[in-house]
Design a protein around this nucleic acid. Structure first.
Length: 430
RNA sequence: GGAGAAGUGGCCGAGUGGUCGAAGGCGCUCCCCUGCUAAGGGAGUAUACGUUAAUAGCGUAUCGAGGGUUCGAAUCCCUCCUUCUCCGCCA
């Protein structure tokens, strides 16, 4: 969330900047709530101070030998007067504080200055293209290719569970697993990330930390458990929350903490919009290799470029044509202040589709989860900056490899980089 | 799942109803001393909110979380969470 102090100070400016991402910030409502909170705060604090003084006085008298009843009598007047007011005043202050908190939690992050204005994906800006699509006459989509290979079965999955799930077997299941290993190895061996294994089920605090709650609960699979448990929608949640309520020393922070994790991701919203009903583009369950960076403030902009390049390196190694897109304000996730999407070329769809999303969150998530480090210059705890990006979405990578590697004879040719992970072969035969 | 023990500041660790935001130690910062190294002396060292020009003062809150008792709670009571030990179960 945003810094309450900053919002209070630069209210108009904040509202103007939020408007660039299509969020209308109710300045009047905020100002009113904040004033009410302040008034309630001052009132309850004054009453508490009064009671504290009176109690202290009783304590002093008792210590000096005065009987307790006697001591109480001497300050009774004050206490009687305020006893009834304190409950009401503190409750009022608590409610007013909660109201501000709720309002603030619903406000998205301020977009970075270079984020283009716009309301939806049509206002996104294409920055670069890499690779060139191979000419494929009458390209088949991954569903046809996968079923022809005998490795992709959506009907079986719907029998086991329902719509929006996949069963893979044989060479495809192996390719799927190989992709995960390949990505993890690249990020740990050449990009310097630390691999972590994390829970796939998280609590509400973690989801509030990264911003999925309170606003986007309908996108989550919630378990029957008390207290509330949720299946993770992305590894971003457990991995970023590794820093929740922590203060890192400058030495352990170094140039930043960089984690990579492979996890399944569970999304309930997928499918409710009727988009991508065919194939494994949009599933309730999919695998992702996720990059998460926690860096000292001021370093997140540079880190975003680096992190994005790490995701690009996977696409390049897999020889998949893609483009890099800068999201406009209206298309970004609420917590992000700047996001690059990497979109891979899908011949059958004759278009680029998102395969990675890399975002800089500034201190927005860190403030929610109180992820801090001890700033060596001041000696004081200061909020970290957080980033994450997919490196890559595994299911969609598989789709892209099938569609881009398809041959006229029904086989699929895979990039050489995968050979070590596939027992030396780079061809999938029907 | 059962039985016990414990959760205090960056860390360790005192504190069972009163002036305790909290002794002491470690770590850290500044100063002094010391011709190296090591050691020594002194001062300071939580966070949030409010007030303020102020990162100065002052006020309020915070001792796992939430309730309760009390004029007053780190301290007493209740519920929950977590950790540890033992038992059960289990990949």
């Amino acid at each position: 969330m945003l810094d309450l102090k900053q919002v209070r100070q630069d209210t108009q400016d904040i509202a103007r900047r939020l408007a660039r991402r299509g969020f209308s910030f109710d300045v009047e409502a905020f100002t009113e709530l904040d004033a009410a909170r302040k008034a309630a705060d001052v009132e309850s604090q004054a009453l508490l101070a009064e009671r504290k003084q009176a109690s202290k006085k009783i304590g002093e008298l008792v210590q000096s030998g005065v009987a307790v009843d006697e001591a109480k009598r001497s300050v009774n007047e004050t206490l009687d007067k305020i006893a009834s007011e304190i409950d009401a005043a503190t409750e009022k202050a608590r409610a007013a504080g909660a109201a501000i908190e709720a309002l603030l939690l619903a406000v998205p992050n301020l977009p970075a200055d270079d984020v283009p204005e716009g309301s939806d994906e049509s206002d996104n800006v294409e920055l670069a293209r890499w690779g060139s699509a191979r000419e494929i006459a009458n390209p088949r989509d991954h569903v046809d290719i996968g079923e022809a290979l005998g490795g992709l079965d959506f009907e079986m999955a719907s029998k086991l569970t329902g719509a929006r799930f996949t069963v893979m077997q044989g060479g495809l299941a192996r390719l799927h697993r190989a992709l995960i290993q390949f990505m993890l190895d690249m990020h740990t061996n050449t990009h310097g990330y630390t691999e972590v294994y994390v829970p796939y089920i998280v609590n509400g605090d973690s989801l509030r930390g990264t911003g999925q709650l309170p606003k986007f609960g309908e996108d989550l699979f919630k378990l029957h458990h008390d207290p509330d448990y949720y299946l993770i929608p992305t590894a971003e949640v457990p991995v970023t929350n590794l820093a929740r309520d922590r203060i890192f020393e400058a030495e352990e922070m170094g140039e930043g903490l960089h984690f990579v994790a492979h996890t399944p991701c569970f999304r309930s919203e997928a499918g409710s919009h009727g988009r991508d009903t065919r194939g494994m583009i949009r599933q309730h369950q999919f695998e992702k290799v996720e990059l998460v960076s926690l860096v000292p403030p001021g370093q997140s902009e540079a880190r975003l470029e680096l992190l994005t390049s790490h995701a690009e390196a996977v696409l390049q190694a897999l020889e998949l044509p893609y483009r890099k897109v800068l999201l406009c304000g209206g298309d970004m996730g609420a917590s992000a202040r700047k996001t690059y999407d990497l979109e891979v070329w899908l011949p059958a769809q004759d278009t680029y589709r998102e395969i990675s999303s890399c975002s800089d969150f500034g201190d927005y998530q860190a403030r929610r989860m109180q992820a801090r480090w001890r700033d060596p210059d001041t000696g004081k705890p200061a909020l970290l900056h957080t980033l994450n990006g997919s490196g890559l979405a595994v299911g969609r990578t598989l789709v892209a490899l099938l569609e881009n590697g398809q041959q006229a004879d029904g086989s699929v040719t895979l990039p050489a980089a995968l050979a070590p992970y596939l027992g030396g072969t780079v061809t999938l035969e029907p």
